[in-house]
């Protein structure tokens, strides 16, 4: 090993972080994956058929990537945006005209939001046409539907925050639709707006829902969603031509070209 990498890796601190050897053997390559928090959502080995682009078009991963962009840009926007009636619109305009890269971050947030809705929808379509909602993945389909609804609610709550005419009337129309919920519709609208009309209370409520409540729910459900995909043996694969059984069940044993983890 050359001297610099050796100096960086052969010390107690590095050894305590990375506890396996250089990934030059199958064993160490496996260890590199399943001792890493960020990599462990993938199996150590996957079949080539499962990662072919045309199998999934990577729509789920791209949805998650859009959410990551939204989280980062959203946090950055929060440094300048104040969710109150006198300031909200002014702060939005400040982001557009006086803050360095403000217009870039705001538009990135906006386009990533539109993109995420489209990607989540396409992901759903792909899963539907692959028949991947069938047992044992039925409940993961349900989680996916909730994730889709949360995505739409995040878009809806974010819509009010610029506090311009478009925002005001869009939320007027949207919250009047809430009234259509049987028997509790009117109360639900009152709770959502924190009053009878869209005002200070509604803006603050939508801000808290948009920046805290809904993203937290989304993160927890995304974790469950991905975890269940892993437990069901990765993405759904139709039976190989000529081969017998279909996909491996949960925690099933070693298949050709696949190594068990854990």
């Amino acid at each position: 090993m050359p001297r610099l990498p050796a100096a960086l890796t052969k010390n107690r601190v590095f050894r305590s972080v990375v506890r396996h050897g250089f990934p030059n053997s199958n064993r160490n390559r496996s260890l590199a994956v399943f001792t890493n928090f960020f990599l462990h959502i993938h199996p150590v080995k996957v079949r080539l058929r499962a990662i072919a682009f045309r199998r999934t078009f990577y729509l789920g991963g791209l949805s998650a990537a859009a959410f990551f962009i939204l989280t980062v840009t959203g946090i950055l926007l929060m440094f300048y945006y104040r969710p109150s009636v006198p300031e909200a619109y002014e702060d939005m305009k400040d982001l557009e005209f006086v803050v360095s890269a403000g217009v870039f971050l705001r538009n990135l947030h906006r386009w990533a939001a539109h993109t995420m809705v489209a990607l989540v929808f396409l992901h759903m379509v792909r899963v539907f046409f692959a028949g991947a909602y069938r047992p044992p993945r039925e409940f993961n389909w349900v989680i996916g539907v909730v994730l889709f609804l949360l995505t739409l609610l995040l878009s809806f709550t974010g819509y009010l925050l610029p506090w311009d005419q478009l925002a005001y009337w869009a939320i007027t129309v949207g919250t009047n639709m809430v009234k259509a919920v049987p028997s509790i519709g009117d109360d639900l609208r009152f709770l959502l707006l924190g009053g009878n009309a869209i005002g200070e209370a509604a803006l603050l409520r939508f801000y808290v829902l948009h920046c805290v409540v809904l993203p937290l729910a989304l993160i927890v459900l995304i974790a469950m969603h991905i975890w269940r995909v892993r437990k069901d043996g990765g993405v759904y694969l139709p039976p190989e031509e000529g081969a017998g059984g279909g996909e491996p069940g949960p925690e099933s044993g070693e298949e050709a070209g696949e190594v068990r983890r854990e």
Binding site: F190, L191, G194, G195, N196, A197, G199, E200, A201
Partner: peptide, 13 residues
């Protein structure tokens, strides 16, 4: 929780 998020005083017109 429902009582808490349901405002008792409204600062409306």
């Amino acid at each position: 929780a429902v009582q808490y998020i349901s405002p008792n005083v409204l600062y409306e017109e």
